[in-house]
Design a protein around this nucleic acid. Structure first.
Length: 591
RNA sequence: GCCCCGGUGGCGCAACGGUAGCGCAGUCGAUUUGUAAUCGACAGGUUAGGGGUUCGACUCCCCUCUGGGGCUCCA
């Protein structure tokens, strides 16, 4: 049985609930401080978040870092003063006059239902419209820290005023806050954009354009290793690997509906022989054409087409981010066409494949969400029901817990989304498994069933890594750049002590390279210490020091990037060690 | 797209409106070294691009491009 790891069940622990109240209270204390320093500030909303809290204000000028210091200093005073939080119910009239000079609060009040009990919370002189809950006393906010200022639209609507948002965080103890801040620093240290440059993996250039990646030799090598493994695994799981072009005729995108529903994410058309073509934002229409290239029998289903397909999508300039959000990326895409009786089995296979793949990359914690039919949807309700049930059933069969996002599916079908949790406990959405009832209809997909009827197949769209670029970024941060041996672009660096050892170093390299390992010799004029330092900073798993003793004995002195000096060993022994460690973690190995 | 903050040799940074410097990396030379930085020299920049203000602009103003933090958490 596969270890599917722990799954987030979504219930709230007492600790989370305490932090929630604490942070909500800290938001009030912050608003109090802001109003003291900026009496003209208009308050918007100030909720707790997963990692802290924020409060939005309408102020005449943006807050500066110095303002934050002052605000924080005032907050500390308020906390030290130990004011109690007092809840108070009010009538709509009372509350409206109380907040008569706070237009955002008035707007919130207007939006509340008549029967709603209106409450305010007070501490010291400060009062805020709020349903709570809060801690008893400001003194309970043991540790607080303001972090950043950012613009944010009122109610998240870009047509409404831009407010100034202050983010902060609060904890029940200084130690907990320090731990959180340390985690933030660690996240910064692991930033894939920094690591990508330091390790020479990829780059982005003004000259090429934003959101477009060029892969350097080492990044390209790692990517190739990922992709080779992906292909091998997909062949093993019964997928046919296909390829499709980067552009397609406008009429194709007309039929698929992309020009109707996805146009704002597509790049402008190009004209070829007086025909309009578009850069592909998705691979599905191409796979569908492969399906349609001949009549299909129920006997040949399921058909599974997989492709590492590069697509281009317009993303608004403000959302681009390193490898995580780009304008050209490669999806590990596949489309499954199957019969009704195969649906549960096919979803199950996708799940098993998913966990095998993610496991190989060191991920063992997931959270799973099933999204069901939204209000506006296309397709036969019976098929919707069957598909949604199949998603549930496949998950349940595997003992996987999951949440339900009622009505959160796409208009064309229900889906499973899987978030993976990385080494720092951060969640990343990668895998998505979606039914599609729209495209089979639009392209008139059929197969002939055992009674000779032309019927529509179920179509499932799935990506496991999501996009290769994004997944690479996640991996880079997950491993902090220290790829496991099977993915390390350079697995060992040979460090000759003096130039007279270069020849022997070359022999060692040959031996290991012939065995299929990626090994380099550092032949520069630096001292050994410098070479080791370089290799450490490049996060190379092994450093092999060779000098007189090693050349004499036919050995290498092995240093591991984490374990340090492991002492001398015969080349053959080291080769064996590498061979064992370089194996791709397989699902079977962990049963 | 919008708000705020940035853009100075490959990278990380400095420079009251008055000669663009430093470190790392690079090249060359010396050194031939035992588990995270040997020494020295050299080379490298129309300060993102364009316009303006000024006797004089990296510095001030405007525009464009581009990077970062946000714009989902609803009293």
């Amino acid at each position: 049985m596969l270890d599917h790891g722990t799954v987030d069940t979504g219930h709230v622990s007492p600790e989370i609930a305490l932090r929630h109240r604490l942070r909500h209270s800290a938001a009030h204390v912050m608003a109090d401080a802001v109003l003291s320093l900026f009496p003209e500030a208009k308050m918007a909303i100030g909720p707790p978040t997963q990692d802290g809290f924020y409060y939005d204000f309408d102020v005449s000028r943006p807050f500066t870092p110095e303002d934050l210091e002052q605000i924080e200093a005032l907050m500390v005073k308020t906390i030290a003063a130990g004011h109690s939080f007092r809840r108070e119910e009010m009538t709509r009239e009372e509350i409206t006059s109380l907040f008569s000079d706070q237009p955002y609060k008035l707007e919130i009040i207007e939006g509340l239902a008549e029967e709603e009990t209106l409450t305010v919370y007070r501490h010291d002189e400060f009062v805020d419209l709020c349903q709570g809950p809060h801690v008893e006393n400001t003194g309970e906010i043991a540790a607080v820290k303001l972090l950043t200022v950012a613009g944010a639209y009122w109610r998240g609507d870009e047509h409404r005023p831009m407010l100034q948002r202050i983010y902060g965080t609060a904890f029940e103890s200084q130690e907990a806050l320090d731990a959180h801040l340390a985690r933030l620093e660690e996240a910064e240290r692991r930033d894939h954009r920094t690591l990508g440059r330091q390790l020479g993996l990829y780059s982005i250039h003004d000259e090429i354009g934003p959101g477009l990646i060029v892969w350097h030799p080492k990044g390209g090598l790692v990517r190739t290793l990922i992709e080779d493994y992906w292909r091998e695994l997909h062949r093993r799981w019964g997928y046919d690997i296909v390829y499709s072009p980067h552009i397609g005729r406008g009429s194709l995108w007309q039929t698929s509906g992309h020009l109707e529903f996805f146009r704002e994410n597509m790049y402008g058309s190009l004209e070829v022989d007086e025909q309009e073509y578009f850069l592909k934002p998705m691979n599905c229409p191409f796979h569908i054409m492969i399906y349609k290239s001949s009549l299909r029998s129920y006997r040949e289903l399921p058909i599974r087409y997989g492709e590492l397909g590069t697509v281009y999508r317009y993303e608004r300039s403000g959302v681009l981010h390193g490898l995580m959000r780009v304008r050209g990326f490669t999806q590990d895409d596949a489309h499954i066409f199957c019969r009704p009786d195969q649906v549960v089995g096919e979803i199950g296979r996708v799940l098993d494949l998913t966990f095998e793949l993610l496991h190989a990359f060191g991920f063992s914690e997931y959270s799973i969400m099933v999204s069901t039919r939204p209000e506006k949807a296309v397709g036969d309700p019976v098929m919707w029901e069957h598909a949604t049930e199949s998603l549930r059933e496949s998950l349940e069969q595997r003992g996987l817990s999951f949440g339900i996002d009622e009505g959160g599916g796409a208009f064309y079908g229900p889906k499973i989304d899987i978030h993976i949790t990385d080494a720092l406990g951060r969640a990343w959405q990668c895998t998505t498994i979606q039914f599609d009832f729209n495209l089979p209809e639009r392209f008139d997909l059929t197969y002939q069933d055992d009674e000779g009827n032309r019927v529509q197949p179920y179509m499932v769209h799935r990506a496991i890594l999501g996009s290769v670029e994004r997944f690479f970024g996640v991996l880079l941060e997950h491993y902090a750049g220290a790829f496991p041996l099977w993915l390390a672009p350079v697995q060992a660096v040979i460090v000759p002590i003096a130039d007279r050892h270069l020849e022997y170093a070359g022999q060692v390299q040959d031996t290991l390279a012939k065995a299929g390992f990626r090994v380099e010799v550092d032949s520069r004029g630096d001292r050994m210490n410098q070479k080791i330092r370089n290799a450490q900073m490049q996060k190379v798993p092994y450093m092999l020091v060779v000098g007189d003793k090693e050349a004499e004995a036919g050995s290498v002195s092995v240093r591991h990037r984490d374990e340090g000096d492991l002492g001398p060993m015969p080349i053959a022994s080291f080769k064996e060690r590498l061979g064992e460690e370089a194996a791709i973690p397989s699902a079977n190995a962990t049963t």
